[in-house]
Computed example of a mutant assay.
Amino acid sequence: MATHLVAPPAWSQPHSVSGLNAHSVLNIREDIDQTLDVGSSAIIGTIPHDASDVMVTGISVAIGDAKWREIKYNGTVGWVNARYLKPANMLLERPEALQCAGTEPFWNVAIDENASTFLSPDLESPIELDYLRLAPGIGRSDLWGHYLGSADGAYSLTVIVRYTEACSDGMSDLTYDYEALLLGLSASGAPAYGCCSISR
């Protein structure tokens, strides 16, 4: 089965099920991002043909000719065929909470107004950060600057997030809806690159 990176078809926001008849359900599969084999992945739930509150996380993968998106529905997180999803609203909405990570160097930032954290290999545990402010992009609805800092002033990070539908972590077949530039990781001011998904 051929695999390749794919840009997901719609924003990470509530989606509706589309294209199923009234007697059908949309199966939720488990772990296809790891196996890249739909047939061997267990069905862990179903979604009614008329559901309108399916949350996509912003992660997708291509398996053969099909696009699959990671979703959360009624507490179940799994994968569904993207051809049966459509955005509930065509306006791009800013995610309330994101999980962003990068490689070389490795880093991880949880962006949340209530509980942001930063983690890197040289830290034993995540550092709690205050969410200082949000700066939407000038003239762009797909760009946001998140400003974070630790209470002791030791860490001051800026995470520039952009909706691209095509961010690759360089280590897997997954594609992420959001790319990130992290400023403040290096004393030189050099940005670090990464990808983000919606926190679930």
Rank of each mutant, 00 (worst) to 15 (best):
G137S: 04
R162S: 13
F118T: 01
L119V: 02
G189M: 07
G194K: 04
E165P: 01
L123G: 04
G189D: 10
T35H: 15
T46Q: 14
I160R: 06
L92T: 10
R140M: 15
P121Y: 08
A151T: 09
L5T: 05
S60G: 14
L119F: 09
A42E: 15
Y193E: 07
Y163N: 11
A180G: 03
S199P: 02
I198M: 09
I32A: 09
L5S: 08
V61A: 02
P126Y: 02
L92M: 09
G149K: 13
A115G: 03
I160T: 08
L119M: 12
R162D: 11
D65A: 12
P136T: 13
L119A: 05
D53S: 06
N21C: 08
S188W: 06
A10Y: 13
Q13V: 00
G19C: 01
S116N: 08
K72M: 11
Y178C: 04
P87I: 00
W68A: 00
S16T: 01
A180T: 03
L134V: 13
E165A: 13
P95D: 13
L183G: 12
L132D: 13
M90C: 02
Y178S: 10
I71S: 03
L185N: 10
A66T: 06
S40H: 13
S168Y: 02
D173T: 11
S125H: 11
A180P: 03
E104H: 12
I71Q: 09
E128I: 13
H49M: 06
A82M: 00
L129G: 01
L181Q: 14
G102Q: 04
S141V: 09
A154Y: 02
A88T: 14
L174N: 10
S40Q: 10
S197Y: 05
W68F: 11
R69L: 15
G194N: 08
F118I: 00
Y176W: 12
L123P: 02
G139K: 12
D53Q: 03
W107F: 06
N27R: 11
I44M: 02
S188Y: 06
L92G: 06
G149W: 09
S172L: 07
E179P: 03
A66Y: 02
